[in-house]
């Protein structure tokens, strides 16, 4: 069963169910009997793919690893194998696909890392790598950096609704909504730039094996950015909804 307690840093072994031998936690095949290992204790999505926990991932490298591992344990290649190996291949392929999907996209990769590092709720145990429910509550709090924009936008949206009720032409409403979107889009661009910077900072810390005390503040800053981004996304979706009301 996958659960947040999957990776015990102190005990890097998994047990081969076939021969009973030990294998490194990130091995896919038993070093003793060469059989495919069922997914028992395993590492995380990064280590499963043989990647460091960096936030910048080289897309081609990720694709190549994904294809290479698929070729090693896809269920097609275990079709005639005994049931335990077939099951192991299904489990391992599923985990690989989930890992690939999560790490391919920078946004889900970041959220996954934050969960893995314990600064964000949700937990890496969830097979989908989707953000946990607990986060929902914190989304409601307006991030301080956005207070001004949110205020202005809400006023604007109220006015647009009033105007629509009093029969203003759709074109005029659309123009207002377009204008209202501008400051949010500007905020988003700034936000992306900040994220890029933090990504590079995290990767550099990781590379030189910086201690936890140095990493923690970067993780916290990243978490703030994620919450902020979720909020920006919601705001933009709100404008989008208002636009579609228009037609």
């Amino acid at each position: 069963m996958t659960s947040p307690a999957t990776s015990f840093p102190g005990s890097p072994l998994q047990i081969c169910k076939d021969c009973g031998g030990g294998a490194p936690v990130d091995a896919h095949f038993c070093p003793q009997c060469t059989k495919i290992l069922s997914i028992g204790r395993h590492g995380d999505y990064f280590s499963f793919l043989g990647l460091p926990r960096k936030l910048n991932v080289e897309q081609n490298d990720l694709e190549q690893r994904f294809r290479g591992l698929s070729r090693q344990f896809h269920p097609d290649y275990f079709f005639n194998a005994p049931p335990p190996e077939r099951r192991a291949s299904l489990e391992r392929s599923s985990y690989l696909n989930d890992a690939y999907r999560t790490l391919k996209n920078p946004a889900s990769r970041l959220e996954y890392l934050l969960q893995l590092e314990g600064v964000m709720a949700g937990g890496p145990g969830r097979g989908t790598g989707a953000p946990g429910k607990e986060e929902g509550a914190s989304k409601q709090v307006v991030p301080p950096d956005l207070l001004e924009e949110v205020f202005a936008l809400n006023e604007e949206l109220d006015e647009v609704r009033d105007m629509r009720a009093s029969g203003t032409a759709p074109d005029a409403l659309k123009a207002r909504l377009e204008r209202a979107r501008e400051p949010i889009e500007t905020k988003r661009a700034a936000h992306e730039a900040q994220l890029d910077e933090l990504f590079a900072k995290w990767d550099a810390l990781l590379e030189r094996g910086a201690p936890d005390a140095e990493r923690r503040p970067v993780l916290e800053a990243l978490r703030e950015r994620v919450l902020e981004r979720n909020y920006i996304t919601n705001l933009l979706a709100g404008i989008e909804r208002e636009m579609s009301e228009n037609v």
């Binding site: 299904l90 392929s93 599923s94 696909n97 989930d98 969830r126 989908t128």
Partner: peptide
């Protein structure tokens, strides 16, 4: 559009 096999819980 998730690659299969896939899991979720």
């Amino acid at each position: 559009n998730s690659t299969i096999p896939a899991t979720g819980s």
